[in-house]
Amino acid sequence: MSLLTVKNVVAGYGDGPAILNGASVDVQPGKVHCIIGPNGAGKSTLLKAICGMLKIRSGEVTFKGESLKGLRPDQVLRKGICFVPQERALFPKMTVRENLRMGGFSMTDKRLLEKRIDEIEERFPILKERRDQHAGTMSGGQQQTLSMARTMILRPEIVMLDEPSLGLAPKIVQEIFDIIRVMAADGITILIVEQNALMGLRCADWGVVLDLGRTLFEGPAEEVLADPRIREAYLGAKKAA
């Protein structure tokens, strides 16, 4: 039984051409899914279509049997799906603590929110240390940590991360993937889009290859890693970081 089903989705920006041309993904509960593919394959577009930032022209997205089609981002969020876009989506001139509070903006119980923020700070000491610092002044890795930790305030069922390793040093990237595993251990289903395909797949349970807006292959991450055709076409040129 899959948690989130994307079926034959066609989507694009504004009146422009379709970037997704019938992409399909099955998201299994509790697993880490990694979507790989070359530049312009439609990986980010897929995540944006799921979270409601882009209009789905045809096809279907269902979450626990309910359609997500036509919902606004805030409505999708309330269903339990968080999205961390490539630009990290922080508020640079707000403090770390204020950024965390924004993560729980849709919560009405203020005390519960403060409690969860405290929990997050316990788990990520760096955020506690920097709580009164402006988010924009932190390092890239710390910012990525913050944006991922922030999603956990809402206790979402699915977290979607767009290129979490972008622009980070290899050592930091490892830390980020460690956090992803920690989140998965908490029972959060994860969907990542990764340019760094080898690294992403090694951390994932399930791999999805997307190209030309379509799903080319879907299967257990080890199988994707092992498949010689995929290795040649999508993994070959990439060096492991």
Partner: peptide
């Protein structure tokens, strides 16, 4: 939040 990052604010509800 909207001033600093409109898209992110929207994503957070």
């Amino acid at each position: 939040a909207t001033t600093q990052n409109r898209e992110a604010a929207e994503l957070l509800g």
